[in-house]
Design a binder for these strands. Structure first.
Length: 492
RNA sequence: GCGGGUGUAGCUCAGUGGUAGAGCGUCACGUUGCCAACGUGAAUGUCGUCGGUUCAAGUCCGAUCACCCGCUCCA
């Protein structure tokens, strides 16, 4: 990228060219929500398609899935989100530091208790919290706390139009759990055998305490996740396999090598269920902390499937407590859990085990932004600055533009015909207005790899001028060869 | 949630309490005809929103919304 050095520049570019707008802008905007404009929608669609092609279509060992966003509440009880995705937080009036209420120590006791028990926000928030004797861990001030604030990290909604007969559901905070919940279905219906993966792209929702940084951290976001199931003991190899696969995916789609890196998680940074985790990071041109996560690749062990086996054993409690998750404790694991409903039987060795899971989890919005930023470039042509988005052809929103050189002499008719033919195969754009140089530059800013110009010579020998985006080099191609020319050049 | 900053045309931005501006872009016409050409003309504004002060508010005051920077937070 040349001169995109501030987030403001990116926001401005995105809006000016119709990639990304603020949501509900005519009403003053809605925090943390963004919309994709005409070019952005195409770009994001292409990012999804490229992911799906690499992770599903080109693999013999991965199948796709598309789950509902709303799922049975017990899914989130089993996954741990229902218990651990909510906290009460208070602010020290002296030093303005935030601390979780359950982390506060009494002034006469040395250590704060770690948060292990479930916190029922409804109950806790209604209670009088006596923080008078509590000490701020940051500045040591005693008893100077604001009223505790509840942070629920899962969005809630009500299912059922009848107000007397509704059920509280959660908008999924990750797509992964839908995959685990369908593990058995896929296994029983698609003749897959371990090792194999299930992939899914879809929206997730998290009530982040803070958002910021444009579309980088939003409360509604899109994930592209793969859960790859493998035999315990082979998980380290598969972890490394997917690390490499996923890193190369970004490079193959044109991300500059110097802007991409791995960052391994420290052991104390790992979630309690993860054996290993690495982030793929991109060097965004934001103000601070340049390197930001695009994707996390984790070894989740057999934690999730075992948790769901516990959850399935807990359904009686669910009914008995009338669906009140706060009154339910997951039942202990069956000592014979390797024979459980989500376990796997390996024919060849006659072994039973619960599969380990390698999870590459990518942010579609983050990747889209990275591809956009990375493709941005400024050229100098005859003393003029040329803005160009050097998208990989697979990602380019428009693959080819068709221009009659002038709007007369029958050239528009020829151009129209070519356009009508090409648009059946590629996303194309037709433009006959204004100077052709301007039309070229406009397509450069949209990242269109090729422009085709119908000129006087077309009527003589049936060739058109093909102008290439990055080099601006022109050549002549027979009009009836254009389709195969594009197929070859765009690798489509 | 705290502190700092910003908000005026599609974009970048001027604008001293007294008629809403420029450049770029967009559109039309003419000329031209292969890299943002030229000429003429046009359209586009709840000045983020709401309220207050004032004869008069884009400008002063208050609140609020959104964004940016820095904290805080980030199972």
């Amino acid at each position: 990228m040349a001169k995109l050095t501030k987030l403001d520049d990116i926001v401005s570019l995105c809006k000016r060219r119709g990639f990304i707008f603020q949501s509900s802008e005519i009403y003053g905007g809605l925090a943390s929500c963004y919309d994709y404009g005409p070019l952005g929608a195409e770009l994001k669609r292409n990012v999804r398609a490229a992911w799906w092609k690499a992770v599903v279509q080109m693999r013999d060992d991965v199948v796709g899935l598309d789950c509902s966003i709303l799922m049975h509440p017990m899914v989130w009880k089993s996954s741990g989100h229902a218990d651990k995705f909510a906290d009460l937080v208070t602010v020290c009036k002296k030093c303005n530091t935030r601390t979780r209420v359950d982390h506060l120590a009494e002034s006469d006791k040395p250590a704060a208790a770690e948060h292990t028990e479930h916190v029922d926000i409804e109950v806790e928030a209604g209670k009088e919290h006596n923080l008078g004797g509590k000490v701020c861990p940051a500045c040591g001030t005693v008893g100077q706390f604001s009223k505790p604030m509840a942070f629920r990290l899962m969005f809630e909604t009500q299912m059922g139009a009848n107000a007397d007969d509704t059920m509280t559901l959660y908008l999924r905070p990750e797509t992964a759990q839908g995959i685990f919940a369908n593990f058995r279905n896929v296994l029983d219906s698609s003749r897959v055998k371990i090792p194999f993966g299930i992939a899914q792209i879809g929206k997730s929702f998290r009530n982040e305490v803070t958002t910021k940084a444009f579309i980088f951290r939003t409360r509604e976001f899109e994930q592209a996740e793969l859960e790859f199931f493998c035999k315990p003991g082979t998980d380290d190899n598969w972890y490394n396999h997917w690390k490499e696969q996923r890193f190369n995916w970004y490079l193959n789609l044109g991300i500059k090598k110097e802007n991409l890196r791995f960052r391994d998680h420290d052991p104390d940074e790992l979630a309690h269920y993860a054996k290993a985790c690495v982030d793929v990071e991109y060097k965004f041109p934001f103000g601070s902390g340049d390197w930001q996560e695009l994707e996390g690749i984790a070894n989740r062990t057999d934690y999730d499937l075992r948790q769901h086996q516990r959850g399935m054993r807990t359904m009686n409690d669910w009914f008995e407590q009338k669906g009140d998750l706060s009154k339910i404790t997951l039942r202990d694991e069956d000592p014979d859990y390797v024979k459980g409903p989500l376990a796997y039987f390996e024919e060849e060795t006659r072994e039973r085990y619960v599969a380990y899971v390698i999870e590459p989890s990518a942010g579609v919005d983050r990747s889209t932004l990275a591809f956009l930023v990375d493709a941005y470039d400024e050229d100098e042509v005859n003393g003029e600055v040329r803005n160009v988005l050097r998208f990989h052809p697979h990602l380019a929103p428009i693959k080819a533009a068709i221009f009659p050189l002038v709007k007369k002499d029958g050239l528009p008719e020829i151009g129209r015909k070519l356009y009508d033919d090409l648009k059946k195969h590629f996303n194309c754009f037709y433009d006959e207005k204004g100077a052709v140089g301007r039309r070229y530059r406009r397509q450069d800013e949209a990242g269109t790899p090729y422009c085709m110009t119908i000129d006087g010579q077309t009527k003589e020998d049936g060739t058109v001028t093909v102008r290439e985006r990055d080099s601006m080099v022109q050549c002549r191609v027979a009009i009836d060869q254009i389709k195969s020319f594009l197929r070859e050049k765009l690798d489509l």
